[in-house]
Write a protein that binds this DNA or RNA. Structure first.
Length: 961
RNA sequence: GCCGAAGUGGCGGAAUUGGUAGACGCGCUGGACUCAAAAUCCAGUGAGGGUUACACCUCGUGGGGGUUCGAGCCCCCCCUUCGGCACCA
C-alpha cells in the first residue's frame, strides 16, 4: 500500500483495537468514579440477537449499525449514552443445535456468542462490552428467577385505586400476596364462588396450607392451571401458538401438533389488558426523574398490539337451562355478547364442544339420554349414535380430528353442530331456545357459550340456514344496506316498544339500545356490563432443558415452595426431551431425568421435588434492558438509583417481528415491577423503531436446490451457475442461510471496508424500509469514502488542509450541518449521507480544504464511518483525544441564507421561468420582476388583466390569467 | 374476509409535508488519462417533440375521478405487492 492511499484494512484494524483497548465507549452511571450527573442520559438499545451457530449475515446488523450511528451522534452531542449489547441465549434452537452437534448447549451457546461478538466488534460497533449479558448465564438468569418469584408472590387487585409520580390515577395494581392473605384472614375480602369450591363454607383460618395455596393460585400473577396446549410429541414439548404453522404442524421439524390439557405455569397478563391498551396512548406517564413521557412508537405496531389485546365491550347475560325432564330452570348459562340489543333476536344457543354443561363427567351435566321427541334428524349429528351424549362426544371427536392437529386455516368454514337435547330460557322474553354444541364456539373466549342471533351474525346465520332454525331480524339496517344478515348498527325493531317492559328498546339506535338493555339486565339481576379480551394468559412452561429452571419445589402435600435463586440447571449427559409418535404419551420434561441430588431439595426443613419445567425463551428478554444498566450487581437485579437514571430506554431499534409478543410481554413484566415498586416508569421503551430487512435475490437450480450467490453469474440479466453453466431461477426475498443468499459481514467488510459496508447499508433507503442488497451499489459508497480521503489526504500521505472558506462553501457547510443533524435525529440516515456526499463533491478539485470545513466534515462523517474519521482526525491533530469525545458541530442559521434565491415563476400553475432575487424582496418587487420575464409575457396575454397573483414568500410565484 | 403499510426513471431511492418531481447513489453513454485495462477525472442521462445552436413545448409519481392558483402529497372509487389477524361471539 502506498503511504497516501486509503488503506481501510489497516485503519479499521487499528481503530477497532484502539477502541477496545481504551474502552472508549464505556459508559459511567451513578456510583461510578468520574460519573457526571449533569450530563443528560440517552439509552440506545438494540433488540439483542439470538446467538445461532450460523453467525450473522450482512442483513442482520442493519439495525445495529443504525443504533451505533445514533449513539455516536448523541455522545458527540454531549449525552451520557448507554449502548449495550448481549445475547438471548436460552431456547429451543440452541437446544436443537446442541443436539445436532452432540455437544452440551452451554458449550455451543458460549462458542456461538464468541462468534457473534467478534462479528459485531468487526463492524466497529460502539458497545460497552463490559456490560455484556447472556440470558443463559447463571448470574443473569438467577434474576430472571427472582423476578418470577416477585410475580408469583403478587396478585392483581383490580379495585386498588392509586396515584403515580406523574399524578395519574389508576384503578388496579399488583400487590404483595401477603396483603391478600391478610384480607382473607381478616374477612375484609370475601372468597369468590371459585374460591368456595376449595374452601366450602369454612373460614380462611380453617384452611390448611394446600387449600390456601389453591385459593391464592386464583389470584397470583404467576399461577398454575390446566391449559389446553399445543403438544408436539415428536419434539417432546409444548409449543407456543406462534411456533405452530397454519397447517397445525411444528414450525421446527414440521411434526404434528395436538391440543391437550396440561398443568402449566401461566402468567396473568390479562389482568393488565386495560393498562397495556391505555398506556399505548397515555401522554403523561412518569419517566422516573420528574418528567413525563408517552410512547413514540410506529402506529402500526400500536395497532397490532391493540388488536392482539382485542378488548371488546358487551354484556354478560345469564340464560337459564331447563331440566330436560321437568322443564324447570335448573342452572345458569352465562353468555357474552357484544350485541345485547339483539337479545330478542336470539333463536338458539351454542356451546363449545368442551363446555362443562355437556361434559358427562361433570355432575352438573344435564344432557338427557334420549333426544326429545320430534328432534330433527339433522340435528342429531352425522354419526349414528345411541344416546345424545354419544352423539355429542362423537361430534367433539370428529371436530377435534378435523381440527387435528390444530385448525387455524379458514378452509373448514362450514358450520356444523349437534343438538344437546337441552333448552334454555331467554331471560328477557321467556322463550325456549334449543342448545347446540358446535365447534365454531371456543371454550377459550368469553364463557364458551353464545346466544345465537342468526339475523345479525354471519356465523349464526350460516348455522341457522344449515339446520333450519328461525332467523328473526331485530335491527333495521339503514336505507341502502343489505337487510339479510345485517351486522352493522341500525335501529332496534321486533323488540318490546315503549311501555311496561324494562327492556323497551324498539326504535332506539343500536348504541342506545345496548346501553338501555344492559342497564335493565343489571337491575333485574340477569346480567351485567362486561369487557372481554382476545388476549389470553401467557403459558409460561416449556418441557425442555435449555431454559431457566423455576425457583420452585413441590412439597409432598402438593404445596408449592419457593426456592431462593439461583436454581442452576443441572449438568445432564442426556438433555433430550422424551419424544414419541403417540400424542397421548405422558409428558416428561428432561429435568425429570436430572440426578436425584438435583430433583429433590430440602426447603425449610422439608423435602420437596423441584419443578421440572423451564421458562419460555421470552422470559430472559422481558427485562434484559434493566440488567444492562447494572449488569454485575450481585445484590439486586438492578440498582434503583441507576435504574432511575437510565430508564426509560430512549430509542429501541429492532425488527417488526417482535411487534406484538416480545414487546407485550416485556411491557407486562415492567408494569408488574412498576406496581411492586421495583422500577420507576410504567413503560420501558420510549421510542421504538422497526428497521426494515435487507432482502436479496435467491437462486435455485432445476431441482429447486438453492445455489450459493457466490456461485451465481449474471449474464445479460439472466442468472447462471458459474461452474455448471446451468440456467437458474431467481426469487427475491429474505436473506438467510436457507436461501444461501447471505454473506458474512467479514467477507464484505474485508473486501470493501467496514466503513463502506456501514455506509452502504444505511444509504440503501429509509431505515424502516426493506431494500434489496446490491453488490454494485456498495461500490458507490466506497468511491465516496475514497473521495473524502483524497480530498483531505494527498498522494504522499500529507494532509491537504488549509486556505480560506469561500462564502459559498461556508453556506454549504452550515446548510449541511443543519441537514445532517436533523436527519440523524430523525434516523433519516440515507438522506444524511446524501448531504455529506454533496458537500464532499464540492471539495473535489480543490487544492486544499479549509480547516474549519475539514473539521466539521470529519465530525459529521464520524458516526457513519468511524474508523476513517478517527484516522484522519488523529493525523490532522485538530484536538487530542478520540473524535468521539468532540462536540458535534453547530449550524449558524444566519449563515445558511443565500443573498439570492431562485424563485420559480408559474403561469396558470405551469413553470415558465426562474427568477433570481433577494429573499427579502417585497411582493411588489417580485411582481415587477416576474412580469418583465420574456417567457412570462409570452403566456400573459394582457398584463393589465391578471385574475390572481400568488406569491408564497421565498417559495413560488403563480400568475393566474 | 377484516385491519395495516406501500406503489415515483433502467435500478435503490429524494422531494423542507400542498409550492420547480426525479436530490444522492448505482447503471448506462461520450470524453480525458493509459500501449491497453482497472482506478480516477470531466460531461450527459425520465419519455417525446423542437432548434444550426440556444431557447422552448407536450406528457409524466399504479389506474380513474375530484378539491385547489397549484396535487407524488388532500378526498372518493379501483388495481397490484407486502405485513398482521383470522370462526373472538
Amino acid at each position: 500500500m502506498k503511504q497516501g492511499s486509503y488503506d481501510f484494512q489497516a485503519i479499521e484494524r487499528r481503530w477497532r483495537r484502539h477502541w477496545q483497548d481504551e474502552k472508549t465507549f464505556r459508559t459511567l452511571g451513578p456510583g461510578d468514579a468520574g460519573f457526571d450527573p449533569q450530563k443528560p442520559k440517552c439509552y440506545v438499545l438494540d433488540m439483542f440477537p439470538y446467538p445461532s451457530g450460523a453467525g450473522l449475515h450482512i442483513g442482520h446488523p442493519k439495525g445495529y449499525i443504525a443504533s451505533d450511528i445514533y449513539s455516536r451522534f448523541k455522545r458527540m452531542q454531549g449525552y451520557n449514552v448507554l449502548h449495550p449489547m448481549g445475547f438471548d441465549s436460552f431456547g429451543l434452537p440452541a437446544e436443537q443445535y446442541a443436539l445436532e452437534h452432540n455437544v452440551h448447549p452451554a458449550v455451543t451457546t458460549e462458542s456461538n456468542i464468541q462468534t457473534i461478538r467478534s462479528q459485531l466488534e468487526f463492524l466497529g460497533l460502539a458497545y460497552d462490552w463490559d456490560r455484556e449479558i447472556a440470558t443463559s448465564r447463571p448470574d443473569y438468569y438467577r434474576w430472571t428467577q427472582w423476578i418470577f418469584l416477585q410475580l408469583y408472590h403478587a396478585w392483581y387487585d383490580p379495585d386498588r385505586v392509586w396515584t403515580d409520580a406523574a399524578g395519574r390515577t389508576t384503578r388496579g395494581r399488583a400487590r404483595a400476596i401477603e396483603s391478600l392473605e391478610a384480607e382473607f384472614a381478616s374477612g375484609t375480602r370475601k372468597m369468590t364462588p371459585v374460591d368456595r369450591d376449595t374452601a366450602g363454607d369454612r373460614d380462611w383460618s380453617d384452611l390448611n396450607r394446600t387449600e390456601r395455596q389453591t385459593i391464592l393460585n386464583n389470584y397470583r400473577l404467576a399461577y398454575q392451571q390446566d391449559m389446553m396446549v399445543n403438544w408436539c410429541p415428536k419434539l417432546g414439548t409444548v409449543l407456543a401458538n406462534e411456533e405452530v404453522t397454519n397447517e397445525g404442524r411444528s414450525e421446527r421439524g414440521d411434526y404434528p401438533v395436538y391440543r391437550r390439557p396440561l398443568k402449566q405455569w401461566v402468567m396473568r397478563i390479562t389482568a393488565y389488558g386495560d393498562r397495556l391498551l391505555e398506556d399505548l396512548d397515555d401522554t403523561g406517564m412518569p419517566d422516573g426523574h420528574g418528567g413525563t413521557f408517552s410512547l413514540d412508537w410506529p402506529e402500526p405496531v400500536k395497532l397490532m398490539q391493540r388488536n392482539w389485546i382485542g378488548r371488546s365491550e358487551g354484556a354478560a347475560v345469564d340464560f337459564q337451562v331447563l331440566h330436560p325432564d321437568t322443564g324447570e330452570p335448573v342452572s345458569d348459562l352465562r353468555v357474552f355478547t357484544t350485541r345485547p340489543d339483539t337479545l330478542f333476536g336470539a333463536t338458539f344457543m351454542v356451546l363449545a364442544t368442551d363446555h362443562p354443561l355437556v361434559n358427562p363427567e361433570n355432575p352438573d351435566c344435564l344432557v338427557p339420554a334420549q333426544w326429545p321427541a320430534d328432534t330433527n334428524e339433522r340435528w342429531q349429528g352425522e354419526v349414528p349414535a345411541g344416546s345424545v351424549s354419544e352423539a355429542l362426544s362423537a361430534y367433539a371427536a370428529q371436530s377435534q380430528a378435523k381440527a387435528e392437529p390444530v385448525a387455524n386455516n379458514a378452509e373448514e368454514k362450514e358450520k356444523t353442530g349437534v343438538f344437546s337435547g337441552l333448552y334454555a330460557r331467554n331471560p328477557v322474553n321467556g322463550e325456549h331456545l334449543p342448545i347446540f354444541v358446535a365447534d365454531y364456539v371456543s371454550m377459550e373466549y368469553g364463557s364458551g357459550a353464545i346466544m345465537a342471533v342468526p339475523a345479525h351474525d354471519e356465523r349464526d346465520f350460516a348455522f341457522a340456514t344449515r339446520y333450519g332454525l328461525e332467523i328473526r331480524p331485530v335491527v333495521q339496517a339503514p336505507p341502502g344496506e343489505d337487510q339479510t344478515c345485517f351486522t352493522g348498527e341500525g335501529t332496534s325493531v321486533n323488540s318490546p316498544g315503549s311501555g311496561a317492559s324494562p327492556f323497551a328498546i324498539n326504535g332506539l339506535p343500536t348504541r342506545e339500545a345496548q346501553e338501555r338493555i344492559t342497564a335493565a339486565l343489571e337491575t333485574a339481576g340477569l346480567g351485567c356490563f362486561m369487557v372481554n379480551y382476545r388476549l389470553r394468559d401467557w403459558v409460561f412452561s416449556r418441557q425442555r432443558y435449555w431454559g431457566e429452571p423455576f425457583p420452585l419445589a413441590i412439597a409432598e402435600d402438593g404445596a408449592v415452595l419457593p426456592v431462593e435463586p439461583p436454581v442452576l440447571l443441572p449438568e445432564m449427559e442426556d438433555f433430550r426431551p422424551q419424544t414419541s409418535d403417540d400424542p397421548d404419551t405422558p409428558v416428561q420434561p428432561p429435568l425429570s431425568r436430572a440426578p436425584e441430588s438435583w430433583r429433590t431439595i430440602k426447603v425449610a426443613g422439608e423435602w420437596a421435588q423441584r419443578e421440572f419445567n423451564v421458562m419460555p425463551q421470552w422470559a430472559g428478554s422481558c427485562w434484559y434492558y434493566l440488567r444492562f444498566i447494572d449488569p454485575h450487581n450481585e445484590a439486586t437485579f438492578c440498582d434503583e438509583t441507576r435504574q432511575q437514571y437510565f430508564m426509560p430506554v430512549d430509542l429501541y431499534i429492532g425488527g417488526a417481528e417482535h411487534a406484538v409478543l416480545h414487546l407485550l410481554y416485556a411491557r407486562f413484566w415492567h408494569k408488574a415491577l412498576f406496581d411492586l415498586g421495583h422500577v420507576s416508569s410504567p413503560e420501558p421503551f420510549h421510542k421504538l423503531f422497526n428497521q426494515g430487512m435487507i432482502t436479496a435475490d435467491a437462486f435455485q437450480d432445476s431441482r429447486g436446490v438453492y445455489v450459493d450467490i457466490r456461485e451465481v453469474e449474471v449474464r445479460e440479466g439472466e442468472p447462471y451457475h458459474a461452474t455448471t453453466g446451468e440456467r437458474l431461477t431467481r426469487s427475491g426475498g429474505k436473506m438467510g442461510k436457507r436461501f444461501k443468499n447471505g454473506l458474512p459481514p467479514e467477507e464484505v467488510g474485508t473486501e470493501y471496508g467496514v466503513d463502506t459496508l456501514r455506509l452502504y447499508e444505511m444509504y440503501m433507503g429509509p431505515l424502516e424500509a426493506s431494500t434489496p442488497w446490491s453488490m454494485e451499489g456498495i461500490r458507490g459508497m466506497q468511491r465516496f469514502l475514497q473521495r473524502v480521503w483524497r480530498n483531505l489526504v494527498d498522494a504522499a500521505g500529507e494532509l491537504r488542509i488549509g486556505g480560506e472558506l469561500t462564502p459559498e462553501l461556508d453556506r454549504l457547510m452550515h446548510r449541511t450541518i443543519q441537514r445532517v443533524s436533523a436527519d440523524l435525529e430523525g434516523l433519516r440516515l440515507n438522506t444524511a449521507i446524501a448531504a455529506l456526499i454533496e458537500l464532499n463533491n464540492e471539495l473535489v478539485g480543490e487544492t486544499d480544504v479549509p480547516a474549519e470545513l475539514a473539521r466539521n466534515l470529519l465530525l459529521m462523517l464520524a458516526p457513519f464511518a468511524p474508523h476513517m474519521a478517527e484516522e484522519i482526525w488523529e493525523r490532522a491533530g485538530f484536538q487530542t483525544g478520540s473524535i468521539f469525545v468532540q462536540q458535534w458541530p453547530q449550524a449558524d442559521p444566519s449563515r445558511v441564507v443565500a443573498e439570492q434565491i431562485e424563485l420559480p415563476v408559474q403561469v396558470n400553475g405551469r413553470v415558465r421561468g426562474t427568477l433570481r432575487i433577494s429573499p427579502d424582496a417585497t411582493e411588489e418587487q417580485v411582481r415587477q420582476a416576474a412580469m418583465s420575464m420574456d417567457n412570462v409575457r409570452r403566456y400573459v396575454a394582457d398584463p393589465a388583466h391578471i385574475r390572481r397573483f400568488v406569491y408564497v414568500s421565498g417559495k413560488i410565484v403563480n400568475i393566474v390569467v
